[in-house]
Simulated scan of single mutants.
Amino acid sequence: MKRFFAMITMLTLTLVLAVQPAAAAAKFPDVTTSNRFHDEIQFLVDKKIISGYSNGSFQPKRNVTRGEAAIMIGRTLVLDGTQRNTKFKDVPKTYGASGYIAAATEKGIIGGYPDGTFQPNKSISRGDMAIIHSRGFDLQLGSKRDFKDVGPNMKASQAINHMAGNYITTGYPDGTFRPNELVTREQFAAFVARGLSPEFKQRTQMKDGYAYDLTKTYVYGQSDGDLHVTYKKVSTKFAQVPFTGFLWEFKHSGTGKITYLAQDESERGLMLVYPISSGVLELAYPVKINSTWQTGYDMEDRKTITGVNKTVKTAYKTFTNAVEVTDNDGMKNYFVKGIGSVKVIAKSGETISELKSIQ
């Protein structure tokens, strides 16, 4: 993958892309391990995707311009950055980012203003960043997470929703996304790293949640063979609609059947989602004994928390902190924090599925 950070401001500092491997791997004096996004920045440096300035700094708090954003997303997606004419009157061929701006425009990732300008030196907002990121990575999964300052009629609302659904953003602790705030270089680096790696997506997960760990593979024993559950990037179709992105792959070793699903965890609870379709609320939050909820569109389909801190024996290990969820048919599903579903038992007492290993 090509490197993608280059400083394009016409009148000020010039970003120098690293050429030597040693320079690319160097740590920045202004990005210490105490920086929240240190690992994400270093990940992109090690992959030779980004670099810093000629004085050795990264300037993590510096705002990202629209031109820089075009370069960042362009080099991430390996677009043609050869300088050339653009459709914008303020972006001539001689402008450093002209090639990436032209390429990203042709792909429909970015756009200009009604007056025919692109305004490459204007700082980009979090809302506009979400739109560029969503289009660039072709994000197609939304989230049930609600941001207090993101309304349904907002231009960036769908893009922000897709960002949340793909574990790229969680917003701020106060429940806001702050779409009008400007994006810094460290924030943009974090968003790109999460778009590329499940390791960094995992860091956006709820600390005390019940979702699967995005970096692990789960193996469940079933009567007709093992079920392997892995989070991976796939290219497939749903109802004849092309899809490329990260999903949970449920692959059955006995039948060979493969099913792709998404998992969405928000303040509402843990939901299993069928892409380009509906979802099922598997566990409602807060976890409380006798809590009952409607699982999906079917008004009659309900689940109830019938136990907490339950002891459940599986082939993998014995858990003493499982949450027991019982559905209308008497089937029980057990969930454990930081792991997810560990065992499913039919009303008859027969084990339908149980965790065998986590790899």
Rank of each mutant, 00 (worst) to 15 (best):
E282H: 11
E249I: 00
D174I: 11
S235V: 09
D226L: 01
V241S: 01
L281W: 10
G269M: 08
L214T: 06
T215D: 13
D208W: 03
Y210K: 09
E282R: 12
G221T: 13
L196Q: 01
T204S: 08
G171T: 07
R185H: 06
G209L: 06
P179V: 10
T259R: 12
F250V: 00
D174R: 14
K232C: 03
K207R: 14
V229N: 11
Y172F: 15
E267W: 10
G221A: 14
Q263F: 15
E282Q: 15
Y231H: 04
T184W: 02
M206I: 15
R268M: 13
K237C: 02
K237F: 09
V192F: 08
G175D: 06
L214H: 02
R178S: 14
V229Q: 07
Y285R: 09
Q263K: 07
E249G: 03
H252D: 05
E267S: 13
K251L: 03
A190S: 13
D264M: 04
N180H: 14
F200E: 02
S197Q: 03
G165I: 09
K216N: 13
S278H: 15
D208N: 15
F243I: 00
T204Q: 12
S223P: 00
Y167T: 10
M163V: 10
I258K: 14
S278D: 13
M206S: 11
F243T: 00
A284K: 15
T184M: 04
L272H: 14
S197H: 02
F200K: 00
F238R: 11
D213Y: 11
K251Q: 11
G171Y: 06
K251S: 07
N180F: 11
T184K: 04
P179D: 06
P173H: 07
I168E: 01
A164P: 05
G209Y: 10
K233R: 14
D264W: 05
V241L: 10
P173Y: 05
H228A: 01
L281Q: 09
T204L: 11
V280A: 09
V241I: 13
G221Q: 07
V229K: 05
T176P: 08
S197V: 08
K207S: 15
Q263V: 12
T176G: 08
N180A: 12
G269A: 09
L214R: 05
L214S: 04
E249W: 01
Y212R: 13
A193K: 06
K232F: 00
K257H: 08
Y285I: 01
G165Q: 09
T215A: 14
L182I: 03
S278V: 03
L261V: 10
D208V: 14
K237A: 08
D264G: 04
A190N: 02
K237W: 01
L227H: 02
S235P: 03
F191N: 03
A164F: 14
T215R: 11
G256C: 10
Y172A: 15
S253R: 12
E199D: 13
E186K: 05
Q187Y: 05
S278I: 04
R194V: 06
S223D: 12
L283A: 02
Q205N: 15
R178I: 10
T204M: 14
E249P: 02
F246K: 03
T244D: 04
D208F: 15
K216Q: 15
Q222V: 00
H228S: 03
S266I: 09
P173E: 00
K207I: 14
Y218E: 01
S197Y: 01
S253D: 15
M271G: 06
H228V: 00
